[in-house]
Design a protein around this nucleic acid. Structure first.
Length: 506
RNA sequence: GUCCCCUUCGUCUAGAGGCCUAGGACACUGGGUUUUCAUCCCAGUAACAGGGGUUCGACUCCCCUAGGGGACGCCA
């Protein structure tokens, strides 16, 4: 609060491990609005402490997407600031230093347990019906032994020492006092064996060092609150005020996920939502204007923002209302502005250039161009099961193919025509299908017809998210995939020789 | 399973004990304007999860139950 006399500082801290998520923009919006409202500063910090999954490409995409959405930060990895660096991989020494201090104080300890042991431990605990958690095995390691094993280069991590009795009480700005028994809190790893910190250590150290006064983050973090509170205490720091925002939900009320819905900011851009409409819509999720106005700009939201008006129930991310809102914005544009938006969206030269290799050889008169690319520049027709009638493939086969392709799409780090072709060739072969047949349901799903421009290039042009949405909707047209069938298909996919690579995060 | 969070129309929400015969928006239905369609305008259907308290009075406060969600990783 501004009444603390301190400058309000908030941050959003995405992890660069995948496509830019609409939830990131949502949390960023609230942090931004709160900071601006109180004349404070809003910071972008990149949490790239997972060396295996973080990529520079993802970071770049996130930065670009947030900017596209209209989110602006005062400090960040791309623009610098007084509290840098703003990329956690560049702050490792800092975490190390604090971790060592915690070890010296006896608040943390080295652990030499192998992943295999921990795995077996957790399995056994679950079998016994106990809560999985570290058993304190290395708590008994003497200082001499520890130093010897460390000197010998034995792999180790640093864990937080957590009290066993009592409960941790922390005030949440939105939900009031939250009390969690310490027995529920695991002895969390703070420093991994690669020397990198985990989220829990890094977030506390950075939020403190960067002068963050208010942490507005997703509800999913409530369970980690005790660890963070304990770290603040052990390090002798004041804890920033915490407010856990509700989680955006799928229509079935589970946490919004890319497996069930479009979640990538790129999707919203490619389909043609205006960033100001998207931001407005996100502002309607769990928050309302004092006068109940539903159409408002970012500036208007900033002016009126008040944490007391944040609701705690998880809002369903409902595309229908977003569509209406986007329509309001689109219709409100001048003819000039509208034309500019259309051009910037789909008729850019670079975008058109991507189309040329697909259409040039098939074109005799320019007027014939539009019908060829209709499904690439526009929505494809809606489908029914009849669209999938095929001389050899049954509906069940089509479902199987589409489901598996969806999995492939999820797993590919980058969707290119060539990569997709290679992947689908292998998949078709291991499913004992001719590529020609394998490709049929995809043509229908993606283009709405069985004959269209080259499939894989079409998918690449549309992009992962749009393609995913169309295949999902095709699957619906085929009667939908029940939870049970989904599991069965997942298993079938995983059993295929050309099956899965690593599945990405949501 | 354990812990935690949440619960107003199908959906987003207003409501901080009497102003509530529960308001608005999307969606839906009906009507009007319009060369079709859309826009736009008007009207309508539709909710306080259930049960106990507290109180003169509960959507609003407390408790229990139910339902939903999240977390239980060398991921964030």
């Amino acid at each position: 609060m501004s009444d603390t006399g301190l400058t309000v500082r908030t941050r959003v801290a995405p992890s660069p491990t995948g496509d830019p998520h609409v939830g990131t923009a949502y949390v960023a919006l609230f942090n931004l609005a709160f900071a601006r409202r109180h004349g404070g500063r809003f910071v972008l910090r990149i949490e790239d402490t997972d060396q295996a999954r973080s990529t520079a490409a993802s970071e770049a995409a996130i930065v670009a997407s947030l900017r596209w959405a209209g989110i602006d930060w005062d400090e960040g990895p791309d623009i610098g600031g007084a509290y840098g660096p703003y990329r956690q991989s560049e702050r490792v020494a800092l975490y190390r230093e604090h971790a060592e201090r915690l070890v010296a104080q006896g608040d943390a300890f080295h652990c030499f347990c192998s992943p295999e042991r921990l795995d077996a431990l957790r399995r056994a605990q679950r079998e016994r019906g106990e809560n999985p958690g570290y058993d304190g095995h290395c708590l008994g390691v003497s200082e001499e032994e520890r130093n010897r094993r460390l000197a010998a280069g034995e792999p180790s991590v640093i864990r937080l020492r957590v009290p066993r009795d009592g409960a941790c009480r922390v005030e949440d700005r939105l939900r009031g006092m939250i009390e969690i028994p310490w027995a529920q809190v695991d002895m969390q790893v703070l420093v991994k064996s690669d020397g990198f910190p985990t989220y829990h250590l890094a977030v506390v150290v950075d939020d403190h060092l960067m002068g963050i006064t208010h942490v507005l983050r997703g509800e999913e973090w409530i369970g980690s609150l005790p660890k963070h509170a304990l770290l603040y205490r052990c390090l002798g720091w004041d804890m920033p005020e915490h407010a856990h925002l509700p989680l955006l939900r799928n229509p079935d009320r589970s946490k919004l996920s890319k497996r069930r819905n479009p979640t990538s900011l790129g999707y919203f851009r490619d389909v043609g939502y205006l960033p100001e409409a998207l931001l407005n819509y996100l502002g309607l999720m769990g928050w309302s204007m004092p006068d109940e106005r539903e159409i408002f700009s970012l500036d208007e939201m900033v002016e009126a923002f008040d944490l007391d008006r944040v609701a705690t129930g998880g809002p369903v991310f409902d595309l229908e209302k977003l569509d209406w809102l986007n329509g309001q914005y689109l219709r409100g544009l001048s003819a000039e502005a509208f034309a500019d938006r259309v051009a910037a969206w789909g008729l850019r030269r670079d975008r058109l250039l991507q189309l040329v290799p697909l259409v040039q050889s098939r074109t005799e008169r320019l007027i014939d161009l539009a019908p060829q690319v209709d499904y690439l520049l526009g929505e494809r027709p809606s489908l029914t099961a009849e669209h999938f009638a095929h001389r050899t493939l049954e509906e069940a086969d089509c479902r199987r193919v589409l489901h598996h392709v969806l999995r492939v799409l999820d797993e590919m780090p980058e969707v290119t025509g060539e990569a997709l072709l290679a992947r689908c060739r292998a998949l078709a072969e291991s499913m004992d299908l001719k590529i020609r047949d394998f490709v049929f349901p995809q043509f229908v799903a993606v283009s709405g017809r069985s004959v269209a421009l080259p499939l894989f290039d079409s998918v690449a042009f549309l992009g992962r998210d749009l393609a995913r949405a169309r295949i999902r909707s095709a699957l619906e047209a085929l009667g939908g995939v029940s939870k049970k069938e989904g599991k069965r298909l997942d298993r079938a996919f995983e059993a295929l020789p050309a099956g899965p690579a690593d599945r990405g995060p949501d």
